[in-house]
Computed example of a mutant assay.
Amino acid sequence: MTTTRFAPSPTGYLHIGNLRTALFNYLIARQAGGEFILRIDDTDPERSKAEYVEAIKRDMDWLGLHWDRIEHQSARFDRYAEVADQLRDQGLFYECFETPVELDLKRKKQLNMGKPPVYDRSALALSEAERTALRAERKGHWRFKLDQSRIEWHDGILGDLSIDAASVSDPVLIRGDGQVLYTLASICDDTDMGVTHVVRGSDHVTNTATQIQMIRAIGGSVPNF
């Protein structure tokens, strides 16, 4: 069955860009007699507000974009923790301790040397004793370890695309404060909810390569992008 999703963050009101994405996802599902999911991306407890959730639902209802079911990512933290543990067991999830300032200095140094500002994976070289010492003074964040090969896929609008995973940084999926970030929550939900088509803005095309690797790592089926 064709299944699409619209996943707004309830940190503000919908704008025309949000609604364009919602419309295309809605039309793809309806044309195929499939399912359209409204998925509230409320993993940020400080910025997500109940009044924005209600405003999103009200605006979509007024526009006639009626969803078949609604999901809240804030209700799925236990599932995200399971997937994080699965990735750790596979050796694909590693803890890092650089501060934002340290990361910024690394990026500037790489750019000055004419290199792409890609995370250098220095955290992988830490011993367990070094990790323990760092945990005592700061909170670590967790990155997905990309297979640094070329990733190819077909985009329904842009055609055949490919990205060399060695040219992008291993993405942070869990912040130092424990907040689960969009990429982890999204690939987990897309897999569990059987999403078959993902419509996103062109600014997210590069992210697609990361998502494809992560979906395959957790045993999911890669959707049509």
Rank of each mutant, 00 (worst) to 15 (best):
L173K: 00
G159V: 14
D189H: 06
Q148K: 15
G140K: 00
A185T: 10
V199I: 00
L146G: 13
A136E: 10
K139Y: 09
E128D: 02
E128K: 08
L158S: 14
R150V: 08
D170M: 11
K109Q: 14
H204L: 11
D192C: 15
R135W: 00
Q110K: 08
D190S: 08
D189Y: 13
D160Y: 10
G194W: 09
R143V: 04
S167M: 13
K139C: 07
A123V: 00
L146K: 13
T191K: 10
R150I: 09
S186E: 15
A185L: 09
S186C: 14
K115V: 01
P171G: 15
W142R: 05
L161Y: 00
F144K: 04
R175W: 06
M113S: 13
L173Y: 01
L158P: 15
L173W: 00
K145F: 11
V198F: 10
K115I: 03
A185P: 05
Q110C: 14
L126F: 00
I151E: 00
V205G: 05
H204K: 04
I174W: 01
K109M: 12
M113I: 09
S122E: 06
E152Y: 06
G201W: 09
L134R: 04
R138A: 11
V180Q: 05
R138P: 07
H141W: 11
K139W: 03
V180L: 07
Q179W: 12
S169F: 03
R138M: 03
R121V: 06
G159P: 15
T196G: 07
Y119K: 09
L158N: 15
R121Q: 05
V195F: 10
M193Q: 12
R131S: 05
L184W: 08
R121D: 01
L181E: 13
D190N: 14
D170S: 12
E152L: 07
S149T: 12
G194V: 08
T132K: 09
S149Y: 06
K108N: 11
P117H: 12
A133K: 13
S149V: 13
I157T: 06
E137Q: 10
G194Y: 03
Q148A: 14
R121Y: 06
R131W: 05
G194H: 11
K106V: 14
A185G: 07
V172P: 07
Y119R: 11
G159R: 08
K115E: 02
D177M: 07
T183N: 11
G176V: 05
E130M: 00
Q179A: 13
W142K: 01
D164M: 04
K106G: 11
D147V: 12
P171S: 15
K115T: 08
L184T: 13
I163H: 04
L126S: 03
T206H: 02
Q148G: 15
V168K: 07
D189V: 14
I151T: 03
A125H: 03
V172I: 05
G114Q: 03
R150C: 01
D120R: 07
G159Y: 14
L111G: 02
R175L: 03
A133I: 10
H141Y: 08
Q110V: 05
N112F: 08
T132G: 05
W153V: 04
Y119C: 08
R107Q: 10
Q110W: 12
R131P: 09
Y119I: 09
V168Y: 09
T208P: 13
R143N: 12
V118W: 01
K139I: 11
I163K: 07
C188P: 00
A133T: 02
T196A: 05
I151S: 02
E152A: 01
Q148Y: 14
D160N: 03
